[in-house]
């Protein structure tokens, strides 16, 4: 099995060139016409953007709808969307528009944001680079994760789901190549509900999960001894 190559990434936000949305109708129309990169940025890259807030939702649309349009119902419906569960950004776009259109049909008045609180459509440019660090054996993966930047965590655990094999993080993908002995680790990683963690918290959770599996394997090994 090849060593695990640790990559890192740094993201920079840029304006998309789309006009800002002042109300729900405009938000809907811009979502319908924006590029896949814009959609991806507002759904998936939010953990990398600097913020003073600890938002209820991990996608920017739900956060804006809750705080600036005061529509908790729509925010909740959009907030539960898992962008990584869609086979493409276009499918994600269709699902998002469907939810917004449903809500628009329920409303008698289009909700507006106050001046200065409009939604700005942005995208990101990303620099991905090889750190030169390698993990040779699965037993060393935990220590390596503990020393990773949040950029590496994002790249290998979240962004990886967008690359083939789709919907699989890089750690699981690599561990799967080491046979049955590491299957419990892969299962444990799959069960992490990453939506609710910041990247720093996600790193801690990854370490905890790998440690717990190691602990339970060791206990099982001791019990099996005569």
């Amino acid at each position: 099995m090849n060593p695990f190559e640790i990559k890192d990434c740094a993201l920079l936000t840029r304006m998309s060139g789309l006009p800002a949305a002042f109300n729900l109708r405009e938000l809907r129309d811009r979502i319908a016409s924006c590029s896949a990169d814009v959609l991806y940025h507002h759904f998936c890259e939010t953990p990398l953007a600097p913020s003073f807030d600890y938002p209820d939702y991990r996608n920017d649309f739900a956060v804006w709808i809750k705080h600036k349009l005061d529509d908790d119902i729509l925010a909740e419906r959009l907030g539960i969307i898992d962008p990584y569960s869609f086979p493409s950004m276009e499918k994600l776009r269709v699902a998002t528009l469907e939810i917004i259109d449903d809500r628009l049909s329920e409303l008698t008045v289009i909700p507006w944001a106050r001046p200065g609180h409009e939604f700005y459509f942005t995208e990101a440019s990303t620099v991905v680079f090889d750190t030169g660090e390698r993990v040779l054996h699965p037993k060393d993966l935990g220590a390596a994760i503990g020393a990773m930047t949040t950029g590496s965590i994002y790249y290998h655990f979240l962004e990886a789901r967008r690359r083939p094999p789709r919907c699989v993080d890089d750690f699981s993908s690599w561990l799967s190549g080491f046979g049955k002995a590491w299957a419990p680790h892969v299962r444990a990683l799959k069960q992490i509900d990453f939506t609710f963690y910041t990247l720093a918290e996600l790193r801690t959770e990854l370490l905890k999960v790998l440690k717990d599996v190691k602990g339970s394997n060791e206990r099982a090994g001791k019990r099996a001894k005569p």
């Binding site: 920079l12 936000t13 840029r14 304006m15 200065g116 409009e118 700005y120 440019s125």
Partner: peptide
């Protein structure tokens, strides 16, 4: 984001 103006080159937010 709100500070950005329409310009013919990429506008980054830092």
């Amino acid at each position: 984001n709100p500070f950005a103006q329409l310009l013919p080159h990429p506008q980054f937010v830092i």
